[in-house]
């Protein structure tokens, strides 16, 4: 059965809300984006710290698993990636040049 555009839009808006909600609980995140990489959706998280944080990687993996197994997001394929704090110029290796937007804490409403 062909996926309808309205259904995908609904799932995508649920995804954005979920990501915003998750960010609200994360004090170590400087910026977070949804973008495209290798033609796939990517949740790119830039941490405030410049150091590897094993606990944060576990939290990100938990989010990834939760989203991948959520029936409300059954047609969404998303990967997650964290990078340490870098200037915005350094994000080009990971971000699509035009298809990207920042996720706000609490969601992107308004």
């Amino acid at each position: 059965m062909q996926l309808q555009a309205e259904e995908y839009e609904l799932q995508f808006s649920i995804l954005v809300k979920r990501l915003g909600s998750w960010l609200s609980g994360q004090t170590g995140v400087a910026k977070a984006y949804v973008t495209l990489r290798d033609s796939q959706l990517l949740f790119l998280v830039v941490t405030k710290s410049t150091k590897y944080d094993s606990d944060f990687e576990d939290a990100l993996s938990d989010l990834d698993i939760e989203l991948a197994n959520d029936p409300d997001l059954r047609d969404i394929t998303l990967s997650v990636l964290s990078i340490p704090n870098v200037p915005s110029d350094s994000l080009s290796s990971f971000m699509h040049p035009t298809t990207n937007f920042e996720i706000q804490r609490g969601g992107n409403d308004g």
Binding site: E57, D62, I65, L81, I83
Partner: peptide, 20 residues
């Protein structure tokens, strides 16, 4: 997956992250 993803993440930072 919980062990695999951080390995993938670290290799991505190692291979692709650079400063301007």
């Amino acid at each position: 997956y919980k062990q695999f993803r951080p390995l993938y993440n670290a290799s991505m930072v190692a291979r692709y992250l650079c400063l301007p």
